[in-house]
Design a protein around this nucleic acid. Structure first.
Length: 658
DNA sequence: CTCTATGTTGTAGTG
DNA sequence: ACACTACAACATAGA
C-alpha cells in the first residue's frame, strides 16, 4: 500500500483560499493531512522596517485566512510557528513526517534566498518532496526573465515582448470546498528554542515598540496553541489606519469597485486624483495584492469582465467614452507590477539599493546607504551632513513647509496608503526634484509606513521617480503647488491632514508662507510658528538638482561600476560640481551637527529668521537615556542593545537642541 | 552609422 | 475645458 500523503502547506504571500494554484496543487495530491503553516520569521520582525499599520494588516489577514481554513475543515486553522523558517520548516517536515512541502513561489529579494535555503535543508532530510508553485503574479517572473534572455525587463514594451510568447493568464480557480485536517501537532522534545534561535543583531523596529516584545517567548505561542501573534505581543501600539486586512475584505472591495462599470472601463491612472481620499480615486487593492489576499488573476478577470460588459452595453452609443487601454487602464496597472517583478527577479537582492545594482544609474545623492569594507550595509547608517539630515527628517515627518508634501507624508503615516501620484510627488521632492537625497532613504520610509510595500514595485518605482532606472526625464519635476492645483484647487487633502492650515483661503493653501500676515492671522496660523516655513527654495533647488543629475548622467556610472563600489564616484562628481556653478554653501559634506545649521539656500531668506522647522518636542528628552531594549528576556540576543545606536536619536537630539 | 518615433502620470504660457 | 507650444532634453528600438 502506498504511503499516505502528508502535506505541509507553507503560507507566505498568499493569504487567501480563492485562486491559489499552490493550494490547488497541494490538494491535488489528495493528502490525508494538510498542515497550514505560517512561520513567524524574526527577519520580518527585526530586520525589516515594518510599521504598525502593515503589521496590523498582516495579522488581520492571517486571522481571516485561518477562519477560511476552519470553514473548510473544523480542525483546520493557521498554525503559526514562531521561528526562522530556515530551521523550522525542515524540523516540522521531520517531526510531522511530511511527504510534500508545498508553497507559492516567491522570486523577490530575501524571500528567494530564504526559500532556497529551506529547500536545501528539506531535501537534505530525504523523504519530503518540495512543490513551489507560481501564483503571485499573472506571469511567472522566471519565465519572463528567461524569455528576456536573463535580463531585467526595463520597460513595459520589453516586458510585453518577453511575455507575449507565454501562456495568457487563466481564469481564477475557485476556493476549495473542503480541506483535509492537520495531523497531530505535537512538536516533540527536539523542537526547542535552542534549535530555533532568534538571532538578530539589530531591531529596526525598536523605535515603534512601546512595550516589551513577547512574541518569541514560546515557539508555538502562548499555551502551545500555534496562535496568531497579537500587536501586544509585538510590543506595538494599535494601528492607526482605516484599512482592514484579509481576503474577505479584499473581495468585498473588489466587488464594490467593479460595480461601477463605467469607472472600471474608462479608468486612466494619470488622470485619477491624488487629492481624493474619501473615497480614494483608485481601487486601494494594492495592500491585498501584496499579501496575496487578492489574487492578481481574480483582479484581472473581474476587470476584464466589467470592461466587456461596458463595451457590449455601449456598443451603439457613439457618444460614450471608449474603454481605456494599457498602460493607463486597470489591467495596465497590473502589467507594471509584472514588469517590476520580472526586473527584480533578474536583478536579485540588490534591486533595492544602488550599490552593485547594474540597472541603477549612479547619482551622487546625499545620505546614501553606506557599507563596511566587507560590503555589508552599515546599520544604523552613519549621520550625514546636518542640512541633509534636517531635510530628510522634515520630509519624513511631514514638516517641510510645503503643504502638499506634508499632507501626503502625514496621510502615509496615518493610513499606510497614499495615491500613486502622491507617491510621485513626495518621491520626486525628496530625490531629484528638491532635496537631492538618495532614493534608498525614501524607500526605507515607505517600507516602514506603506501597507502595500513590496520589494519589486516599490523599489522599482523609487528608481523610476529618481530617474535612476526605467525613466530618465529628470527635467520634468513635479511642482509643489502647480501639480496639486491641477487636481484640486481647494486643497482638500491639505485641510484634512494639515489641520493647522484648514482655514487658509484656497489661493494660499499650497503656499501659505506667501500669504500676507493678516491673512495668516485670520486663518489662525502663523507660518514659522504654527506651521513651518519652507525648508528650502523649491525653484532654486530644482534647477540645482537638474544640473547635478545632468552631470551624473554624463559620467554614466551604474551601481555595479568599480568607481561606485570603491566609493570614488561621489568624490569624482563632487569635483565636477565644484568646477561647475556650485558655490560652497553645501560643499562641506562631512559636517557635524552645528555646521551649517539653519542655512537655507543662499539668498533665499527661506529657512532662516523664524523658528524654521517646528518639531514636536514631546517626550523626546525621556527617550534618550532611559530607553531600554524592548526585547523580553526569552529572546536570545547577546549584547545587542548596548552596541545598538538608534538611527534617529541623533536627529532627535539635533532638533531638541534647537 | 544616423535618424526618428516612442515613452502611463511636468510646467508655464498662449489661444 | 482643452489643446497647443517652448522649455531643455533622456534612453531605446527599429529603420
Amino acid at each position: 500500500m502506498a504511503k499516505a500523503t502528508r502535506v505541509l502547506y507553507w503560507f507566505r504571500t498568499d493569504l487567501r483560499v480563492h485562486d491559489s494554484p499552490a493550494l490547488h496543487a497541494a490538494l491535488a495530491l489528495n493528502p490525508e493531512v494538510l498542515y497550514p503553516v505560517w512561520t513567524w520569521d524574526p527577519e520580518y520582525v527585526f530586520s525589516h522596517r515594518v510599521g504598525v499599520n502593515r503589521f496590523n494588516f498582516l495579522l488581520e489577514s492571517m486571522h481571516d485566512l485561518s477562519a477560511a481554513l476552519t470553514t473548510r475543515s473544523p480542525e483546520s486553522r493557521l498554525l503559526v510557528v514562531r521561528a526562522p523558517p530556515q530551521m523550522a520548516i525542515p524540523a516540522l517536515c521531520r517531526q510531522w513526517k511530511i511527504t510534500h512541502l508545498v508553497y507559492e513561489r516567491d522570486t523577490a529579494g530575501y524571500a528567494a534566498i530564504r526559500d532556497s535555503e529551506v529547500v536545501k535543508r528539506v531535501r537534505a532530510l530525504g523523504g519530503t518532496e518540495v512543490l513551489a508553485v507560481h501564483g503571485h503574479t499573472l506571469y511567472d517572473p522566471q519565465r519572463v526573465v528567461a524569455a528576456n534572455h536573463g535580463k531585467p525587463t526595463m520597460s513595459l514594451a520589453s516586458w510585453r515582448k518577453a511575455a507575449q510568447g507565454l501562456p495568457e493568464p487563466e481564469r481564477p480557480l475557485p476556493p476549495p470546498e473542503k480541506l483535509p485536517p492537520p495531523g497531530d501537532t505535537d512538536l516533540g522534545d527536539a523542537f526547542t528554542r535552542k534549535n530555533q534561535p532568534i538571532g538578530c543583531d539589530t531591531d529596526l523596529n525598536e523605535d515603534t515598540r512601546e512595550t516589551e516584545l513577547h512574541c518569541y517567548d514560546h515557539i508555538a505561542g502562548p499555551n502551545n496553541e500555534f496562535a496568531i501573534p497579537s500587536m501586544d505581543e509585538l510590543g506595538l501600539p494599535p494601528a492607526t489606519t482605516s484599512i482592514y486586512g484579509g481576503e474577505t475584505e479584499a473581495l468585498r472591495r473588489l466587488d464594490a469597485y467593479c460595480r461601477d462599470k463605467v469607472r472600471v472601463a474608462t479608468f486612466a491612472k494619470p488622470k485619477t486624483s491624488p487629492a481624493e481620499f474619501d473615497p480614494p480615486a483608485t481601487t486601494l487593492l494594492s495592500p491585498y495584492l501584496k499579501f496575496g489576499c487578492l489574487s492578481s488573476r481574480e483582479f484581472l478577470w473581474r476587470v476584464r469582465d466589467a470592461v466587456d460588459e461596458y463595451v457590449k452595453s455601449n456598443g451603439d452609443a457613439k457618444k460614450s467614452k471608449p474603454a481605456s487601454k494599457p498602460p493607463e487602464n486597470l489591467e495596465g496597472q497590473l502589467l507594471f507590477r509584472e514588469m517590476y517583478y520580472a526586473a527584480e527577479c533578474a536583478q536579485g537582492i540588490n534591486f533595492g539599493q544602488v550599490r552593485g545594482n547594474s540597472i541603477c544609474r549612479f547619482i551622487d545623492w546625499k545620505l546614501p546607504n553606506q557599507y563596511a569594507a566587507d560590503g555589508s550595509k552599515l546599520v544604523p547608517r552613519p549621520r550625514g551632513n546636518a542640512v541633509d539630515e534636517e531635510r530628510f527628517q522634515s520630509w519624513k515627518e511631514g514638516k517641510t513647509g510645503f503643504p502638499w508634501i506634508d499632507a501626503i507624508m502625514r496621510q502615509l503615516r496615518l493610513e499606510g496608503w497614499i495615491h500613486h501620484l502622491a507617491r510621485h510627488s513626495v518621491a520626486c521632492f525628496l530625490t531629484r526634484g528638491q532635496c537631492y537625497i538618495s532614493w534608498e532613504r525614501g524607500a526605507e520610509v515607505f517600507d516602514e509606513l506603506l501597507i502595500d510595500w513590496d520589494p519589486c514595485s516599490n523599489a522599482g518605482n523609487w528608481m523610476w521617480l529618481s530617474c535612476s532606472a526605467f525613466f530618465s526625464s529628470y527635467y520634468r519635476v513635479y511642482g509643489v503647488k502647480s501639480f496639486p492645483e491641477k487636481f484640486d484647487k481647494t486643497g482638500k487633502l491639505v485641510r484634512k491632514f494639515c489641520p493647522e492650515l484648514a482655514k487658509f483661503p484656497d489661493k494660499y493653501i499650497y503656499a501659505p508662507h506667501t500669504a500676507p500676515i493678516d491673512v495668516q492671522k485670520k486663518a489662525g496660523c502663523i507660518i514659522g510658528r504654527d506651521y513651518p516655513m519652507p525648508i528650502l527654495d523649491d525653484k532654486l533647488e530644482k534647477e540645482r538638482c537638474i544640473s547635478r543629475i545632468k552631470m551624473a548622467y554624463k559620467k554614466g556610472y551604474h551601481g555595479d561600476h568599480e568607481a561606485v563600489l570603491s566609493e570614488r564616484a561621489t568624490a569624482e562628481l563632487e569635483g565636477a560640481h565644484d568646477k561647475g556653478s556650485e558655490s560652497a554653501d553645501r560643499a562641506a559634506d562631512s559636517g557635524d551637527v552645528g555646521e551649517g545649521v539653519g542655512d537655507g539656500p543662499a539668498g533665499s531668506g527661506i529657512g532662516r529668521g523664524g523658528e524654521g522647522v517646528q518639531v514636536d518636542q514631546r517626550s523626546r528628552s525621556d527617550e534618550q537615556g532611559t530607553r531600554k531594549s524592548k526585547r523580553a528576556g526569552g529572546v536570545q540576543n547577546s549584547e545587542g542593545s548596548s552596541k545598538r545606536r538608534k538611527t534617529d536619536r541623533k536627529v532627535d537630539e539635533f532638533f531638541s537642541k534647537k
